[in-house]
Write a protein that binds this DNA or RNA. Sequence first.
RNA 1: AGGCCCGUAGCUCAGUUGGUUAGAGCGCUACGUUGACAUCGUAGAGGUCAGCGGUUCAAGUCCGCUCGGGCCUACCA
Length: 899
Amino acid sequence: MSLDAYFEPQTHEADIYRRWEASGAFQPSDDPARPAFTISMPPPNATGTLHLGHAVMLAIEDVMARWRRMAGDAVLWLPGTDHAAIATESVVIRKLQAEGMPDPRAALGREKLVASIADFVAQSRDRIREQVRAMGASCDWTRERYTMDPQLNRCVNAVFARMFRDGLIYRAPRIVNWDPYLQTTVSDDEIYHEERPATFYTMKYGPFEVGTSRPETKLGDTAIAVHPDDERYRAHIGKTYEVPWPKGPTITIRVVGDPHVDPEFGTGALGVTPAHSHADFDIAQRHNLPLIQIIGEDGRMTEAAGPHYAGMTVAECREAFAAELDAAGLLVEARPYSQSMSLCYRSKKAIEPLPKAQWFIDVNKPAVPWKGKTLSLRQVLRDTVDAGDIEILPEHEAKTYFHWIDNLRDWCISRQIWWGHRVPVWYRGEEDMYVGHRPPSGDPAADGWTQDPDTLDTWFSSALWTWSTLVDPDLAADPARDLRQLLAESPDFARFHPTSVMETGYDILFFWVARMILATTYATGEVPFRTVYLHGLILDKDGDKMSKSKPATCVDPLDTIAEHGADTMRLSLLLGNAPGKDLKLGKERIVGCKRLVNKIWNAAKLVQRTMDGASPADLALPEAIEHPVNRWMLGRMRQLITRIDARLAGYHFGDAAEQIRGDFWSQFCDVYLEAIKVPGLADAAETPAVVSRVFADYLKLFHPFLPFVTEHLWSALGHDGHLITASWPAAEMAHDWPAETAGVDAAARLISAVRALRAEQDLAAAAKIDLAIGVRNRDIGDVLRACGPIIERLTRAEQLVFEDASDDAEAPADAAVTLDADFIAAVRLGAADRAAEHKRLEKQLEAGRKRLAGLDKQLANENFVTRAKPEAVQRVRDEAARQREELEAVEARLATMAG
RNA sequence: AGGCCCGUAGCUCAGUUGGUUAGAGCGCUACGUUGACAUCGUAGAGGUCAGCGGUUCAAGUCCGCUCGGGCCUACCA
């Protein structure tokens, strides 16, 4: 197959992807001898579109999947989508509202609204699937999962029921983060904080003065808390006071001593509002204080706040109450204050802490069997990373993880929305409660059971993702099997769990990664994954988060794929990418990556010409390689493969890509492909085989990064099968020729030096030169001589002679000379600019002296010589000797020119 | 308030356990090519490794402080 002028991704990529998929290459090998390598794809939101976060995730995971697959593992990369409870429900509700349905929940009712959301999801899932394909992701679509699949629901319910039985799930009134706008609770992690200007009030409060930024909550106070050691208040502790509020209720407060109160802050006395503050609720728990709810779920004051204030919004009440306090002479001070507000991620509206009965996971109860002990969930979370069962990359994220664990509170898992896994708890009458997949006696409706109306936090089901996706759907359909049996009998679970690597953004370390560890250790007794690889955010070239509102700097992965191809898109996300590191992506970067694709393509054309119609199968590498340049090339490839294997194994993907690119460009293209055009190498019988082999190895090395163009070239050059399932190149230990490696390197240096000389002497390219080479390093003499024709051609030398090193000083006075540790190259210039040559040598002399002085100084330092490692000292000695020799040569040369 | 990360060439970043003359890509300058190259090649300029101090024979690398930038967490009422 002959190659077009350039690679057109648009015409090839979709077809190549279809071929891969049809070949079954995405499915793991069923050869039991192969080790399993598993990645659970973090499921994108089913209603979303592919953004750069997904793109970088897919690129990195695909590199791992393709590399391990070629290296011989049974690779399972399991794709899927997430139902994204709150996000999806609010998207659909807004859509319905835009279509003229002001209150879809009321208008449709639960069943119809849920059906309508399900429809919407089903439609948009296809879109995200196509986008994942467009990235070239080599995931196993036959095992695609969705967080709302029946067998996943089965797992959700089973885990819930077991945790309930173990006392790890409980229902209790707690202060929840209530979003009055979305009318639901949200978890601690779904909140963000924002500094807002506010007022800090100090008010008279019975016998005390108390400071607060939320005076309206004082209507619901039940205590004053002070530090137990605070002399000012010690006498009051334990006493009870009645405090009448202007136009409000008279509250009864008890004075409690609590060490959590900071005596330095404000007046040192804290009004305790148990119903509307997490902190105050904790104080109330410790001191057994009553709780009065004065703010309702609608975000308005309740009757408990008194008839005057009831019905006001919180903001209205704050203003009104402050005014009344002022009028009554109770307001001591009101000063400007910066308040940290809690806002909901989804609605961007203020969170109102209030008491509500919710389902919680107890993170402190010791009920989890782990390594022969019974630990709390919190302890297990810590142990997995502490003991090294799970490795987090970058390492410093482990600190963040521990910090999070230390501050972890019980996890509120119930939500008052309709879209999601419904809490698997059933009630009948006042007394009967059943927790499990479904009530014991068949049809719940007929038997008078009602299911809990709440749904579960999305992250509860995502927390099971690594293993619930491996549970066999048919087995899960059988209600007789319990969770243990399901796991024991599901072949994929046995084969592919724990997964190998969890690759995701560091921004969801807590949301998701930690929850997977929590739920999976509990449910399966295994860690969910061995390694966590956290990638960074993608920023625009100014370092800001990309947003559609800044189209000039925004890179849309779909546009980029359409315009430049998936290979280019992937590489631009991978180069310079390291774990945890944010990546600035500008359009320039993309252009640079596209050039590599083009370069590979063009190199292939030359390779194809060199192969001259033979197939790679015809061009088996001979046992003995003769030509030094071929030996050099194979030796270089051996070194490269070793380096790349180490980089990949260490998760340095960007670095690996960079190294392959560098060697490919500067050694394979610039040196080797130039050299094979020259007689001697060009007509060597072994050369086509070496070219074919080395280029094939490069295609393999590039494949995880640039799957499409490499796969296309693989078949265009006549290789059998698909590159995706070809075997990863092995470093051939036999391909080790030190003299050839050093010799050809020297030749390349020599060529470069002569070219520099030409440039300095301002010689036209056409200018004829005579080149005399003195070999100083006898070990590489033969190799250098063998490279003669190549040197001649690439330096455009008219005549080339080799001389012995002893002839160093014999170069004629009108020649320009380059001095190297291994060789001396003299270019006869004719009417050259001797002044320029003189100046150049002077410069070289000066630099050399400076360098030598530094080395000598180091060697004169007794401390260095005695204390440094002997190898280090020897290195410096060798270098000094070489430097001295070179200096002498330069000096001699200058003398010759003068004479 | 606490924690974490970052500061290396004009730009984006590499720099593995401290050890020769700190690298790459892009950009820039000059020259050359268009017979693998919507080009490519060659050569070149460009860095007080944020600053100060310390440990060490030796610091971009380890430690402390300062300045600058970013992120996360939080029950300062």
